[in-house]
Design a protein around this nucleic acid. Structure first.
Lengths: 134, 134
DNA sequence: GACTTCTGTGAGAACGGTTGTCAAAACGAT
DNA sequence: ATCGTTTTGACAACCGTTCTCACAGAAGTC
């Protein structure tokens, strides 16, 4: 009758998505991840990829950013703390960066103009050395 | 025969979109602008609104940012220099801010990891004092 | 294993913002 | 007024994402 809170089940698809994220060292879109799954021979529906990525984002296991064209990109992210990204716009390779100076700047700016409940998005895009070499 | 490079023509629609932007003091989406035009009795096609906004962005007369949900927001922006925004997520009211410290930080971070052709997006969202009062 | 229950899946439809199409309208120069 | 070119707008197409819902398949129980 009164049963356990209902856990997440371990399914083949869930494991496959998670495995792809582990092998990725940069951001990738849901559709790119779906393609990679196909290439591995894993058949996973696109909806399922989206659902599981969203679940991982909710569980704070995956970071989510928005590319210039509006597409959403995902990346495994263990770090529990607040941070930003330096992303290669060509290969997606990513470095996590954090800067307390930035956080303080954002808060100061907001306070100066009496804004509350402040959030900020800071992402740095560039071309990494190996991509620039080509 | 060989004629002038072809100027932008002054059309009713173009003027109407521009007028709306002048009356706006925050960011608004293309569709919101389209609605405002309708309320004024100006009949302008949605495609035309998008086209003219894009043209203004290209002409550096309008700033463009992407909201959390991916929607694109526009705002008249005279300032020629590089800057960022402090945006009220409730009413769209916007303050232009610039911080050389931030620019230097972004460049330093990129240089440290040998990234080139660096760009950054920094937007601060919050609730402005008048919206917070409600 | 067999049975049950409830979560997860997937094919496809729907959605929402944006861009493309193309014939008709209209600007501006003559 | 006329002409050549740009601009417009109704509508379709696009594209990433979310929704729907019948069915598959975890995990618990006996």
């Amino acid at each position: 009758m009164v049963e356990v809170p209902a856990q997440q089940r371990s399914t083949r698809q869930r494991r496959a998505v998670s495995a792809i994220l582990d092998d990725l060292d940069g951001f990738a879109s849901a559709q790119q991840i779906h393609d990679k799954l196909s290439h591995r021979g894993e058949k996973v529906g696109l909806s399922t990829v989206y659902r599981n990525l969203q679940a991982l984002v909710d569980a704070a296991q995956v970071d989510m950013i928005r590319a210039d064209d509006g597409e959403v990109l995902y990346r495994r992210c263990n770090a529990g703390h607040h941070h930003h990204h330096l992303v290669c716009r060509s290969c997606g390779r990513t470095v996590e960066v954090s800067g307390s100076a930035i956080e303080r700047w954002a808060e100061a700016v907001a306070a100066e103009h009496a804004f509350v409940e402040v959030e900020h998005t800071i992402e740095v895009f560039g071309t990494c050395s190996s991509c620039a070499a080509r």
